[in-house]
Simulated assay, not measured.
Amino acid sequence: MSAFAEFHDELRSVARELLGKAGDGPVPWDAVARAGWPGLAVPEEFDGAGAGVAEVALLLTEAGRAAARTALPSVLALSVPALLAVGGDALRDEVLRAVVAGRRVPVVVLGSDSPFGEGGTGATASDSAAFRLAGGRVTGAAHFVLDAPTADLLLIPARDAGGDAVLAAVDPDAVTCTPVPLVDATRTVGSVTADGAEPRAVWRFERPFALGARAALATACDSLGIAEAMLDATVAYVRVREQFGRPVGSFQAVKHACADMLVRVTVAGHLVAEAVRALETSAPGAEISAGMAKSYATEAAVAVAGSAMQLHGGYGYTWESGIHTYLKRATLDRALFGTPAAHRRILAARYRA
C-alpha cells in the first residue's frame, strides 16, 4: 500500500509540474504522450500502463487544479474505456496503440447538456445513444460535445436496426462539427451532426459501458481540482495581504470563510473518493456514488471559486489574478452532464420508488 501511495504522489507531482508549465495556453499533446498519460488505463498488451480508475481520477483532478486546456480528460474518462468495452479487432487494437503513442486523439460523441435522460448516471451506451446506424451509415446529432473540434477520430455510440448498442468510428471529415463559443476558454465544445456518415468501423459492446457514471465522475474530479486550487491560492493570499497593519487572514470573518471553503473541499473529496472506489470495483450502486459526487463537487467548486474571488478583494476581479478562469471553468462543470438539481431529482426518485 505504501508503494501504491508513493506512486500516486509521484504521479501527482509530475502532473502538477507538467500541466502548470502550459500556463494559459493549451497543453502540448506530445508532452502528454511522452508522460504516458493517454495510455494510463490501457492494458499492457496494447503497450499501456494498465492502471485503474484511481490513477485516472488523480490526473483528472490535477487537470482541474491547473485549469488545463487539453483533451486528456475526454480520452482518459470516456474514449479509452469505450474502446475497451467493445469487441476487439485489428483496427480497434491499432487505435488503442495509437492512443498510447500519442498519435490519436479519439473523442466519444456524447452530448453534455443533459443528465442522460431517465437513465441518469446509470445510463449505458445504448441508453445515451443519440445516433442511429442503418444501412451501414450513421445518422443523428449531439450538441455540446466536449473536445469534438480537436478530435482526429470520433467514437459515436449508436443503436443499430435491432436496437443494440454499437460504437462507430467516424472520421471528423465525414460529419459536421460546429464549434460552440464558450465563456470558459479552457475547453472546446462542438455540435456534431451526422447525415449518413460512413464509419471506418462499427464495434459491438461486449459489456455495459456506463457512460453516465464515467462522465459524471470525470466532471466531479475536475471540479474537485478547481476547488483545491482556489482554497490553496486563497489561504496563501490572505496570509500575506495586509489591512490595518495586519494580515487579513487574521480577521475572524476571513477565517470563517476559509473554514467553510475547507469543509466544502473535504466533503467533495470524500464523495469523489467513494465514487472512484465504487467504479473501480464495479460495486452495486456505483452510478449513485458518481451522481452524488458530481452533484456536490461541481456546486462546491462554484461556491469555493466565488469565495476565492471575494477574499482576494479587488485583485480577485482583475485579469491577472487568474481566478476568473477557475470560476468560469467551475460554472461550466456545474452545467455539464446535468445540473446538480437534475442529478438530485434522479437520486431522489430512487428513494420515492
Results as ranks from 00 to 15, higher is better:
Val170Asn: 09
Leu262Trp: 06
Arg241Val: 11
Arg200Asn: 07
Asp184Cys: 15
Arg239Asp: 15
Gly162Ala: 14
Glu228Gln: 15
Cys177Ser: 07
Lys255Ala: 01
Glu242Asp: 12
Pro199Tyr: 05
Val240His: 08
Ala210Asn: 14
Thr234Gln: 03
Ala215Gly: 09
Ser250Pro: 00
Thr186Ser: 14
Gln243Glu: 14
Arg207Tyr: 01
Ala174Met: 11
Pro172His: 13
Val202Phe: 11
Asp173Trp: 06
Ala229Trp: 08
Pro179Ser: 06
Ala218Phe: 00
Asp260Ala: 15
Leu217Ser: 06
Thr188Tyr: 08
Gln252Trp: 15
Phe205Ser: 11
Leu211Glu: 02
Phe209Arg: 06
Leu182Asp: 08
Glu228Leu: 13
Leu231Cys: 10
Leu182Gly: 10
Arg200Pro: 01
Gly196Ser: 06
Glu206Pro: 00
Val240Lys: 13
Leu224Val: 08
Ala227Thr: 09
Val254Ala: 04
Thr234Cys: 01
Phe251Glu: 04
Val240Pro: 01
Gly163Ile: 00
Leu231Ser: 02
Asp260Cys: 02
Gly163Ala: 07
Ala259Gly: 01
Pro199Phe: 12
Ala215Val: 07
Ala169Arg: 12
His256Met: 13
Arg207Glu: 12
Asp222Gln: 11
Asp173Gly: 10
Gly245Phe: 05
Ala213Gly: 06
Ala174Ile: 08
Met261Ile: 04
Val183Arg: 11
Ile226Trp: 05
Cys177Val: 15
Thr176Pro: 00
Ile226Gln: 03
Val183Asp: 14
Asp164Gln: 15
Asp164Val: 11
Ala194Asn: 02
Gly163Ser: 07
Asp260Lys: 14
Phe209His: 15
Lys255Ile: 00
Gly163Leu: 01
Cys258Glu: 10
Ser191Ala: 13
Asp222Tyr: 11
Glu198Asp: 10
Asp232Thr: 09
Ala216Tyr: 07
Thr186Phe: 00
Ala213Met: 08
Phe251Ser: 07
Gln243Arg: 14
Thr188Cys: 13
Val175Phe: 01
Glu206Ile: 04
Val180Thr: 07
Ile226Phe: 07
Ala201Thr: 14
Ala257Thr: 03
Lys255Leu: 04
Gly225Tyr: 08
Ala161Asn: 00
Gly190Ser: 06
Tyr237Trp: 14
Leu217Lys: 05
Arg200Leu: 15
Val240Ser: 12
Phe251Ile: 01
Gly245Arg: 10
Cys258Val: 15
Leu231Arg: 08
Leu231His: 05
Ala253Gln: 12
Arg239Pro: 00
Asp171Ala: 14
Pro179Gln: 06
Arg241Asn: 12
Arg207Lys: 13
Val189Gln: 04
Val254Ser: 03
Met261Lys: 04
Gly225His: 03
Arg246Ser: 11
Met261Gly: 04
Glu242Phe: 09
Cys221Ala: 10
Thr176Met: 02
Ala216Thr: 10
Ala168Phe: 04
Pro247His: 12
Glu206Arg: 14
Glu206Tyr: 03
Pro199Thr: 05
Gly225Cys: 06
Ala227Cys: 03
Val166Cys: 02
Thr178Cys: 08
Gly249Pro: 08
Val248Asp: 05
Arg241Cys: 07
Phe205Leu: 03
Leu231Trp: 03
Ala194Val: 00
Thr219Asp: 11
Val248Ser: 00
Gly190Met: 07
Val254Tyr: 01
Pro179Ile: 02
Cys258Pro: 00
Ala216Gly: 03
Arg239Trp: 05
Arg200His: 07
Met230Phe: 00
Val166Gly: 03
Ala210Leu: 15
Arg239Gln: 13
Val238Met: 04
Gly190Val: 04
Gly245Thr: 01
Asp164Asn: 11
Arg207Gln: 13
